[in-house]
Design a protein around this nucleic acid. Structure first.
Lengths: 139, 139
DNA sequence: CAATAGTCTACCAAATTGGTCGATTAATAA
DNA sequence: TTATTAATCGACCAATTTGGTAGACTATTG
């Protein structure tokens, strides 16, 4: 399961993508509309900003915006930034790979099966973007 | 990611399926061959037994065996028994469903996307079984 | 300079993870 | 029937992660 943090991140991004192009959005706004604890949301938005998914502006008229056009940010990327690996085993992760200490990966059946599972889920998450969080009409 | 527990469970099952039909297998055997901490493995095997994936026998000549033919136990089932939900969000889980408190699931784009992701991964894990843990020849 | 709004550092409680320990019970064999 | 074998059960534990909170600080605008 995704952590609460990642779930909040997705909701916050959903809110931001709907307001894309408009004025910067206040943390407090997102917090209230999406029912996300304010201070926790601060941390989350900061992480998304450090990952270059969002930009921010301080002071009056400040707030958060998407950094790039929504179709350029994949859900896979967002999840990796907040929660880390998407794969179910370290030895099949593309971005967080760690070798298996007990088995030969070339021969390991478990390895092969979970590569299949990984590719199946990435087939979705690498191709869905923030744009897919918008309602139908906005295509 | 799967927990260590689930990873160990898969390795233990791999060992057991290879010895399917033979005498019951000792916990100690599995522990040594698959490098799984003995007492931790005890817990894991017990859970698999309580889930009717394994059977056990006490005393001399005792040990653990698969309860059913290997093709009857899916990887999805094993994972759910040990780790719980496979879905990435509570509101898209089939066996551990919990409603979303902030959004209308019929309209929620996030919900729809993660149903797609869930179905993609289940497309693999519901159809792969313990038999698929055997080397090629044993089909 | 005051008000606004994000940034940063630090901290915290509770739950989960990844185990361990020791006693008990069941089955078998001598 | 007693010793041995091997799974079972309940309790416990340290370390890490999760899901936050508090408060001081910095940058921007008017």
């Amino acid at each position: 399961m995704l952590s609460k943090k990642a779930q909040y991140a997705l909701k916050a991004l959903e809110y931001l993508v709907e307001r894309q192009g408009a004025d910067p959005v206040l943390i407090r706004d997102i917090s209230e509309q999406k029912r996300i604890p304010l201070k926790f949301l601060e941390n989350i938005l900061l992480e998304l900003r450090n990952a270059a998914i969002l930009t921010s502006k301080k002071g009056k008229g400040g707030g958060y915006c998407l950094k790039n056009p929504p179709e350029q940010t994949t859900l896979a990327h967002v999840i990796r930034v907040i929660d880390g690996p998407i794969a179910m085993l370290p030895c099949v992760s593309l971005y967080f790979y760690q070798p298996c200490d007990t088995c030969d990966e070339n021969a390991c059946r478990i390895n092969k099966l979970f590569i299949e599972a990984r590719d199946a889920v990435l087939g979705v998450l690498e191709h869905k973007t923030l744009r897919d969080l918008l309602p139908e009409t906005s295509a």
